[in-house]
Design a protein around this nucleic acid. Structure first.
Lengths: 184, 184
DNA sequence: GGTGGCATGTAAAAAGTTACATGATTTA
DNA sequence: TAAATCATGTAACTTTTTACATGCCACC
């Protein structure tokens, strides 16, 4: 694969790391916390994947070790090449959007279940979504969004997506349950 | 890995195939059409993946070749074991739900862009979502939903999710654009 | 006789998950 | 001094994508 082609492929974990390091230098351990705490609903990453990608990014010159600390800690900093790649991904690469929804896949096949089983399925979906909705509401209320940091400013906008998504999905499940009882 | 554990892992492509074969026997080619036409927004599958999975499913006894036709066509039928596995997945396996959204990941990093670039990003998102919304509306209007088939009955419920999702996301992008111009 | 659609497959690489593995440092 | 946390890595496997590969059959 040529260098030109290499710049066109996806790898959003890579860009998630670059985006976080654009805010401030961090270790793999630091980044893992952020992926688990802040980005878990948007781009989950495992420890294994993260450490592997950090080494690849360093090898590719998009990040570099800017400090070493106790316990083998390596603090990474974004390079100019890394900042350029982040910017390119932000403005030139069209988002893929959401795909693959195993809940909706089941919905297509609800005809294989009894009416009662289908109702239980949709009720569980409604309740699970409502639970998630309340978790997001709790985050909204607990975080200080006026702190002036970019990640908070735009994190609030991402959270709004989640709040609207969970409300939408809960209402959809309620609608589907009504339709199930009066399908025709 | 034991047989017991094997029944607990994900593999929704597998269950997408089982679900479609539960409606009626079909060849890989038939199934590929359905994945591209009906399930593309829910569970995309490539030709390569599909044919490979069909052979695995046959080997595992969840489907079987019920007829052969011209050009090497193999028509598959769901076995009892396959129907049982489909049912198990429908009622016993909790949906994973939506994860990984590379559009929202970019939103977290919008602070790295100029105000103008960030606005362009959100406008593109709004316009792209609106286009998708209109495509789904066109499907809703063109399909005969009263045909009495399960896949249509529940496909309509899945489509409703898409209609509500695209409306939600378009409205969210509009909200985000307003907030961008009056952020504080 | 050529084109388009029907029909199935393999190979290689990328991306993601789970489990295994090790060790240092801080804090109670 | 024991437990919790910090800290990084490897190995095996699964899932998904992209590209390559082949050939039959119906229709014009």
């Amino acid at each position: 694969m040529s260098m030109l082609e290499a710049t066109l492929i996806h790898m959003s974990l890579r860009h998630g790391i670059l985006g976080l390091l654009a805010e401030q230098p961090a270790s793999g351990y630091d980044l893992l916390s952020t992926f688990h705490e802040t980005l878990v609903n948007v781009w989950p990453a495992t420890q294994s994947q993260l450490y592997g990608e950090l080494n690849k990014l360093a090898k590719d010159g998009l990040i570099e070790v800017s400090a070493t600390g106790a316990r083998g800690r390596k603090e990474y900093t974004l390079t100019e090449a890394g900042a350029a790649e982040l910017h390119r991904w932000m403005v030139d690469v069209e988002p893929v959007g959401v795909a693959r929804n195993d809940m909706l896949l089941r919905v297509f096949f609800l005809g294989r279940l009894s009416r009662s089983e289908a109702r239980t399925f949709l009720e569980q979906e409604r309740d699970g979504t409502e639970k998630h909705e309340r978790q997001l509401q709790a985050i909204e209320e607990s975080v200080d969004w006026d702190m002036g940091e970019d990640l908070a400013t735009y994190g609030r906008i991402a959270l709004e997506w989640g709040l609207r998504f969970t409300r939408m999905q809960r209402e959809w499940a309620e609608w589907a349950l009504e339709r199930l009882d009066a399908p025709r």
